[in-house]
């Protein structure tokens, strides 16, 4: 049996993805846990893993100019669609933060002065927590390949979960709608949509759900920081009903929860996660 792949996502940052993931992690279900927010990974700070291994990954490629061979003809910087090559002192210079590694520059160079080399992407960490094995990664600052790092990281966690025969692969997703989120959702069985009960939270969740609908995946919702206004809560509920998304859990806005969490303490006693677990299982 494949493990059930559960991805916690919200669109908005700070809506409570990591909180929900950590609460799900702390249930007795057998699982491998994977933090796919590789640009701002936080789950390990809550779960405190004992790190057993780390590995620098080179995913994809980046262009490198052999300065002694470059004749400065300019074909590469004209051909590059990502403005990743500049004319510096009459020779080509690659801005690594902007290079997508497509290889067009190397193709157009008449002097064969450009080679495609492996790029340092980030570090993958593997550790054990009290609740299961944890995979997370740190994208090297400014790298453009976070989507690829997410795919690779999740692939490793998935394999491990299969090898162990776990029931869950539990994934903490990144914020936003772009490449890393698409990579995180791709292949999921269930998306737990964490909706912050605020105007921003609703707006972001609506866009995320539109993205999630492009995948063949089940969706359940958690309303976080709810109870601030009856109108917002009503809108949230009506929207979920309209979209036929079950609301599995409602967590009230509470300074107590926020303060515990702000000190990296999991507010287990204040939030009963079991309705969400029932909804997933």
């Amino acid at each position: 049996m494949r493990p059930k792949e559960i991805v916690v996502a919200s669109g908005k940052g700070g809506a409570g993805k990591t909180l929900i993931t950590a609460l799900l992690a702390s249930t007795p279900e057998s699982k491998v846990i994977c933090d796919c927010d590789v640009e701002a990974s936080n789950l390990h700070l809550l779960l405190g893993p004992k790190i057993e291994s780390s590995q620098r990954l080179h995913l994809g490629t980046v262009a490198r100019v052999k300065r002694d061979v470059c004749r400065g003809c300019g074909r590469c910087w004209q051909a590059c669609r990502f403005s990743a090559i500049e004319d510096r002192d009459g020779k080509a210079y690659v801005v690594p933060e902007l290079c997508e590694g497509c290889g067009v520059c190397a193709f157009v160079c008449p002097a064969s002065a450009i080679e495609m080399v492996e790029e340092d992407t980030g570090d993958v960490f593997f550790g054990r927590t009290d609740w299961g094995e944890l995979f997370y990664a740190e994208l090297l600052p400014g790298r453009g390949s976070s989507g690829r790092l997410v795919s690779e990281l999740k692939g490793r966690a998935r394999k491990r979960a299969m090898a162990l025969g776990c029931r869950w692969l539990l994934v903490d997703g990144p914020p936003g709608l772009g490449c890393p989120v698409i990579s995180a959702i791709s292949g999921a069985d269930v998306v737990v949509l964490v909706v912050e009960a605020s105007l921003s939270g609703l707006s972001d969740a609506e866009r995320l759900l539109a993205l999630v609908r492009r995948f063949d995946v089940e969706v359940v919702a958690v309303a976080n920081k709810s109870g601030i206004s009856g109108e917002l809560d009503g809108r949230l509920q009506a929207w979920l009903e309209e979209e036929s998304v079950p609301l599995a859990l409602r967590i009230p806005f509470s300074p107590d929860i926020a303060c515990l969490y702000a000190n990296a303490v999991l507010p287990k006693a204040l939030v009963d996660i079991s309705p969400l677990v029932d909804c997933i299982a």
């Binding site: 940052g13 700070g14 990591t18 590789v38 640009e39 701002a40 936080n42 700070l45 933060e97 902007l98 994208l139 600052p141 400014g142 790298r143 453009g144 976070s146 990144p174 914020p175 936003g176 772009g178 890393p180 969490y261 702000a262 000190n263 990296a264």
Partner: peptide
């Protein structure tokens, strides 16, 4: 600017005169 420290962040802060970090008082 968007969250993170990847390409969207780089694209956003490029050319800025200064970066005003908005940081919450948490370990995260």
């Amino acid at each position: 600017c968007p969250p993170g420290s990847g390409c969207a962040f780089v694209e956003s802060v490029e050319g800025a005169d200064l970066l005003l970090g908005v940081v919450e008082d948490t370990p995260f």
